[in-house]
Structure formats: C-alpha cells, structure tokens
Design a protein around this nucleic acid. Sequence first.
DNA 1: GAACACCGGTCGGCAACGCCGACCACCAGG
DNA 2: CCTGGTGGTCGGCGTTGCCGACCGGTGTTC
Lengths: 255, 255
Amino acid sequence: MPGAIQSLSRAAAILRLLAGGERRLGLSEVATGLGLAKGTAHGILRTLQQEGFVEQDPESGKYQLGAELLRLGQSYLDVHELRARALVWADDLARAAGETVYLGVLHQRGVLVVHHVFRPDDSRQVLEVGSMQPLHATALGKVLLAYDPVARGELGGGPWEAFTARTVTEPAALDAQCALVRERGWADAVEETWEGVASVAALIQDRRRNPVGAVCVSGAVETVCGPDGAVRPALVASVRTAARAISRDLGAHRF
Amino acid sequence: MPGAIQSLSRAAAILRLLAGGERRLGLSEVATGLGLAKGTAHGILRTLQQEGFVEQDPESGKYQLGAELLRLGQSYLDVHELRARALVWADDLARAAGETVYLGVLHQRGVLVVHHVFRPDDSRQVLEVGSMQPLHATALGKVLLAYDPVARGELGGGPWEAFTARTVTEPAALDAQCALVRERGWADAVEETWEGVASVAALIQDRRRNPVGAVCVSGAVETVCGPDGAVRPALVASVRTAARAISRDLGAHRF
DNA sequence: GAACACCGGTCGGCAACGCCGACCACCAGG
DNA sequence: CCTGGTGGTCGGCGTTGCCGACCGGTGTTC
C-alpha cells in the first residue's frame, strides 16, 4: 500500500490532539506537540478552520474542534447500517429488561458506543453515544475481544488499567474469560468498570458471520444480578435474543 | 489570508460528499462527483481510511464515513462551553415547560443542534443532536438571524423552501419578523417547519453581548399555544428566563 | 463464453504544492 | 525599553502529491 498523504495525516493528528486535550490549544502548543514548524501547523489549522473542522476563539486566538465534526459524526450514525437495524430491537430490550442498553462497535483499541437507550425511568442520564469504553473491562469489549482475533492482537499483553478491584488486568485471565465467552455465547462484567454496575453483552454478526458489534444491558448490580451474585438468567436470555434478532436482521435482506 | 491546503480542502469535500449521499459511494463516484482524477481521490480516501475518517465496505469496495468522526464529534461537545453551561438550565426548562428543549448554534447556513432534552414523558423520541435546522423556518433560526447580521447576509435573498403553508419564504416578511424578534426579545415559529409543531426561542449571549446561540422550547401546537392561537406567555417567560440564566452563566466567570 | 464496460487500485514522471524558517506585529512582564 | 512570548505571514526550495495511463478482477451483455 502506498504511503499516506502527509498533510492529511498531520491534520488528523491535529484534530486528535485537540480532541484529547480538554482545553483549547494555542498554535505553538499544537506545533510543538506534533513536532511541526509553526507555519506548517498554521496552514493546516487555517484550512481546517475554513472547512469548519476547527474553530478559533477570537479572544485568545486558541483553537478547538469545530461544529462540522458534530454534523459529520451525526451523518455517520445516519448511514450506519448496524445501528439503523438495531434501533427498534435495542428499544424493546431496554423496555423488557428495565435497564440501560448500549450498542457498541470495535474502533481502534476500544469500544465505540453507537447507540444508547436510557433506562426506562425518570432518572437523569447523559447520552454516551460517541464515547469510548475499554475493551478489557466491559461486557461489550470482552464479547468483541472473544470473537475478533485482530482486536485481541492489537490490545497487546497488558497489564491493563484497573478501574475497580475486579477489573481483569492480566492477559491469561482475560484470555480465559474470552474462552468462556465463546463457550457460553455471552459476556458479563460485574463491577469491572465502575463499582456497583454490572453488564451483560452478546455478539452481533453480519450475513457472513463476521463480528460487527455487540449489544449490552447495563445496570445496578443489585438489579442485574441475582441473590447468588451471578447475572440473572432471564436477562442473559433477553440480551442473546436481541443480538440474534439484530444479526438476523442484518443478513435477511441479502437474498 | 493565504490560500488553503489543497489536499485538505479536497478531503473535506469528500467527507461532505459522503455525508450528503445517503448510501455508500464508490471511488469513481467520488472522483467524478468532485471532478478529481481517480488516483487523486483514491490517495485521499486511502489516507482518510487509515485515520478512521472513512470506512470501506470490504465486500463492495464502497466508502462511507468512519467511526472516528463520531468520536471527534463527541469531543467537540465535551469542550463546548455554551453547551456545558446550558445543560442544567435546559433540563430545568424542559421539566418546567413539559416540552422538548433544543439548544442551537449558528453553523454555515443553518442551525446546528448541540443539545436536546427530551420531552419529559415516555413517548419514543429520537435524539437530534448534530442535526441541522433551517434558519428561516425555525424559532432558533429566526432568533439567530435577528441578532446576527452576518448570518442574515449569508442567507441571501430567498425565496426559501416552504416546509408548510405557514413557512416564511420571502425576504421582506422574514426581515419584518426579525425586527419583531429584536423588539420583543424572543421568536416563535408556529407550524412553520412541521405541521402541528410550534416553538419559542430566545437568544444566548456571551460576556461581550455577542450572540452565541439560542435556546428553544418546542412541542405540539395544542400545548404550546393558547386558545387564541398565540404562544402561551408563561412559556415565553420560561424560555427567556432560561436564556438569560445561560447568558449570565457564560459571563459570570469573567471577573 | 467471449467481448465488453466498469470497478477499485497502482505506478511513475512532472511540476505544483505545501513545508520550512525567517520575519512581522502585538502583548505582558520585568 | 527591552525581552520572551504569542499568533500570523511570506517567499524560496524541494519534497510531495497530483495526474492519466495502466492493471487485474467482476459482472453484464449478447
């Protein structure tokens, strides 16, 4: 494969840099942060600004991400086939389970949330579409790891960050869990990401049985798990049924 | 201002092209659609793909937008100061009004929705963050037009698209409405975008009194408007109060 | 089944394009 | 008033990316 276009790669790096730092960044910060000459960085920033990908605070002259990115991100969701077909199933699942539902796809070294159905009560919740979750510490992630060798390979050999005392941080333990996931056909994560939160996830496949994403139910450990500490079987069944339904939906129109 | 970087502008055009067309596009379609040589378009697409901004369907070879855009769009929201400060006010406004609340900013020739609070009931609603609304046919848009001469200038001289029979399509009528908005301090749009839907919006200013966005309450015309067909005064008061609160919040930390 | 049209992808040569570093205007602090 | 910082500009050099011809595969047509 021939090389990438230099200016484009650099522009992407600038956008990621701006996305990473919480606050706005100045021209010099951007330039030194990526090892570019000031003039070079300025040329790229100027173009990105004209296109709406970057905005400049007129007061301080510092740069931040632009609104066009939000619009394009929304367009990504609009054409996302998996998400479109999963919408109604995810809604039903949330209703039946009485819990939050996430739909995630593999992206870089994490799980990107492409759909999020609020728990059906009146509590205040923030939408997490577009956010990333760790592969090794979530039910969504472990499902994708179990069925996607490439993802497992890219994750490397740990040890990984521990979010709680129950986070799996060692490769051997994670691989054992993945084997279990493949055997059972579903993954759980009880207090591995946040204290008090438990999740169940199952795989979504396309028409050729390739893993394309995962669906997950997440909620308070008291409601997701039974008195024995294990995930309630009825919930597992709901999640697996939903995953199968979405997978079937993805393949149905093929012939 | 010196010129833009050619390859970057072209890449942006490709992304917009992919965002516009509902379906996936092939290499040749992209190339001819923008008047580029196939090799050129391929080089840009290849780089965008490496960076995650576009994805390629391995089966058909066609291109679509990539997941990285969703992630960056979310990052845009994370650093968006207006949105961050308005979150709690918008929530309260939705609760008090019992209706949907939108928060919009000017972007290109439309209003970009940066926040959306669902109507506080159990009905099924889709999130519209990241979508665009027309300037001339929404309450949000008319507020921004009334207070931002640049936006009004860019909109040109119409006539604009009519979404319903009550849509304002002529420049003279729109300018008259804008004058009224400035006089009253708020804008309404009753069945100008969709049949049966009415909205009220008010301006949000930053510390230097520059218009930076608008907040809007939207709902069924039967609940938003009173028996006389005009918007309920209590609702107008709520929206204006919320807008003032957000504006004050934006300016408060200045000194 | 062969001819065709079209697909996505590659490659090399030419020159345009964008990179670089010096420079400018401005501002804050000493 | 100088110094060190900012964002921004400019022109010359040479790297870079653009272009159009070409390749191998696919599906359509007859």
